Each structure stands twice: as structure tokens, then as C-alpha cells.
Amino acid sequence: MADIEAKITFLKADEGGRTSPVYSGYRPAHLVNEDYLTTGVHHYYNKEKVELGETVLGTITFITPDAYPNCLWIGKIISIQEASHIVGYAEITKVFNESLIKKV
């Protein structure tokens, strides 16, 4: 089951992003905390392929979310990375996994 829903934007190549489009099932790293990168699987609503520079709504399922609880909220923007290289951003629109919701 997905952990979050997000508006996902990929940088164009001339903005420092990838050089090829991405497909549903893409598994980049995500900076969920200032000091914690984790892999997540993307699934895009009504799209199989996302062009660079495009924003799409979709879900992200993280690996081992129990390792970084209480770190996400609606409106938080997390970077999408390939190693240390930022290729896009995800703005959280829903948090499905309650253990990830930041407690106030």
C-alpha cells in the first residue's frame, strides 16, 4: 500500500534533471528527513510515462517507513534524487501511512 500521495515534478535536463522520461514503477531516493534518504516506488495516476518538466499526481511507497516515523505532513516538499543528484520534487497531498504523520 502507498505511503503518500504527491504532486511530483521532474526537472528538465537543462535544469539539472534527468535526460530521459520516467515511467510508473520508477524507484528513486527521497529525502524524507534532513539526514535520511530512502527509496520509494512511484505510481502515477492515469499515466505510464512522465516527461521531464511535467507535474503529475501519483503515489509513493517507501521502503522501511518504520525507520523514519513522524516526519511527513501535507504540503511538505521532498526532493527526488538519484544518489546525491536532485532530479525532481514531490509535494505531499495526502499521507496514507499514519506512522509517518508528523505529530504536532
Rank of each mutant, 00 (worst) to 15 (best):
M1P: 06
D3A: 09
E5H: 01
A6V: 00
K7L: 14
I8M: 00
I8C: 03
L11P: 01
A13E: 14
E15G: 04
E15L: 10
R18N: 02
S20W: 10
S20D: 12
S20N: 12
V22T: 10
V22E: 06
V22D: 01
Y23E: 13
S24W: 04
R27K: 11
R27S: 01
P28D: 09
A29D: 13
A29E: 15
A29H: 13
A29I: 05
H30I: 05
L31W: 05
N33M: 15
N33L: 15
E34D: 14
E34M: 07
D35I: 05
L37G: 08
T38G: 07
G40M: 03
V41G: 00
V41R: 05
V41W: 07
H42W: 03
H42T: 02
Y44A: 01
Y45T: 09
N46L: 07
K47G: 04
E48C: 08
E48M: 13
V50M: 08
E51H: 12
L52M: 12
T55E: 12
V56L: 00
I60C: 00
I60Q: 05
F62S: 11
I63C: 11
T64N: 14
T64S: 11
Y68L: 12
N70A: 10
N70F: 07
C71I: 02
L72C: 01
W73R: 12
W73K: 04
K76I: 00
I78C: 00
I78H: 05
S79E: 15
I80Y: 11
Q81P: 01
E82N: 14
A83P: 07
S84I: 14
S84T: 15
G88L: 05
Y89M: 00
A90K: 04
E91A: 01
K94H: 10
K94N: 08
V95Q: 04
E98A: 15
I101S: 07
K102H: 07
K102R: 14
K103C: 08
V104G: 15
